[in-house]
Design a protein around this nucleic acid. Structure first.
Lengths: 231, 231
DNA sequence: TTCGTGACCAGAATGCTAGATTGGTCACCA
DNA sequence: TGGTGACCAATCTAGCATTCTGGTCACGAA
């Protein structure tokens, strides 16, 4: 039955995501989602407690997919665990997924009140951006500048990354940079600010880094399908 | 007569600034400003064409004062012209002036619709942040990293600085950093990202740098007092 | 003649109410 | 036992009447 329920949850999330992007948070009703997903309205509340939780799940599922991509890249190339490489990929992956792009660029048109709802917090919290586990691992393996402790990044790292996302809606039309070029600027800034000049081999840390992001992905995946599914 | 008019304009701007900070843009009426400044409503329109221009003038006057402080600091210590020193001061000066802080942190409560009004654009445009003249001067004197051209900063520099301002309203209460520490993080980021490891002497460029900011200050000052004053 | 004023006006903002919409529940059904 | 949709309270919307306010300009004071 779990397979059925998971498939059904995904179908509902697919519909919710589609309508969210086309109509914006405010206009999407539970009735409409239920109708298009071919389920009764009550069924949706078997998966998520509130409308807000449902839309949080839409974001969480996307975040999990993105984190999987990140982890896979790290397994394919250990160099990807370096902070600037990771954040470069993070930026590109987030920008190419409409739901995450809306969240990170704080697209008021799409998200409306969902922007300030507490349910969304975990999605743009620093935890998603760079967990302490990950930063600790970098520090252990000499992938942060000499003397830089993970908590030293608590303020500046999210702040810098946030700038690159939040400025998006304010960019004048003359700026013709593509996502790759923007990501390069971000990566360059982070590398010079936080990383050592001569980076050591990444291989010894790659496995654990990938595991960290896979675990994070699982956490978001679990959150996406609500507490109501259970065993 | 010019002295009288300038004093009157300042009195009006003082009142407008005071009410703006206490009530927010939306609630402040021209009538109230006129009453408290002890002038007729029509008199205000002798100085500025519209309400929007008046409030722009409030910001422009603050910006001019800030730029004066910047220029004075550069005259007192040539090292202040270095990009990270300048932006450190810029951040601190902007954060300690309530009007500029509201503008740069995009304080919706205070600024309301003024946030999206076209009149405000010049105040947070890249021109105020770092004019091409200034960046060109830095480049000429080897105060930018080898191979870095002024236009290479067009995207990343405002983006990074913007991040430090825009994240302010989103900072959780746990962040106990003071303005100085935030400014230090910003400065450190900019120095490592854009400046050479061994900076040359700043003295030869200091005079011209100060002049650039003094000129910029004058431009903002002129803009503040409207086109209606004339000769 | 020049500068300053406040009564005046059109259009925008606000308050209000009736009616429609919608998130969430739960008694009932397959 | 898992699923449903009629139902309800609370919120949101539409439409209108009224107030408010940015901006103008004819007039008066200096």
């Amino acid at each position: 039955m779990r397979g059925d329920q998971s498939g059904r949850a995904d179908r509902i999330l697919d519909v919710a995501k589609d309508l969210l992007l086309r109509w914006g948070y405010r206009r999407v009703t539970i009735d409409e989602i239920a109708k298009r997903a071919g389920v009764g309205k009550g069924t949706i509340y078997l998966h998520w407690r509130t409308r807000e939780e449902l839309f949080f799940a839409v974001g969480a599922r996307e975040a999990a997919a993105m984190l999987d991509a990140v982890a896979a890249a790290m397994r394919a190339d250990a160099g990807e665990i370096r902070l600037h490489r990771y954040m470069r990929r993070f930026f590109l992956e987030a920008m190419r997924r409409p739901v995450l792009r809306a969240i990170f660029t704080r697209d008021a048109e799409t998200l409306d009140k969902f922007l300030s709802s507490p349910a969304r917090q975990p999605l743009q919290g620093a935890k998603l951006l760079a967990s302490h586990d990950y930063l600790g691992l970098l520090a252990e393996h000499g992938l942060l500048r000499e003397g830089l402790r993970p908590e030293d990044l608590d303020y500046p790292l999210p702040t810098i990354v946030f700038g690159f996302f939040a400025i998006e809606p304010l960019l004048p039309a003359e700026v013709t940079l593509g996502p790759e070029e923007k990501a390069d600027h971000l990566a360059d800034t982070l590398r010079r600010t936080f990383e050592p000049a001569r980076p050591p081999d990444c291989e010894p840390a790659a496995e654990r880094a990938a595991e960290i992001f896979e675990r994070l992905s699982r956490e978001f995946g679990d959150a996406a399908y609500g507490g109501n599914d259970g065993s």
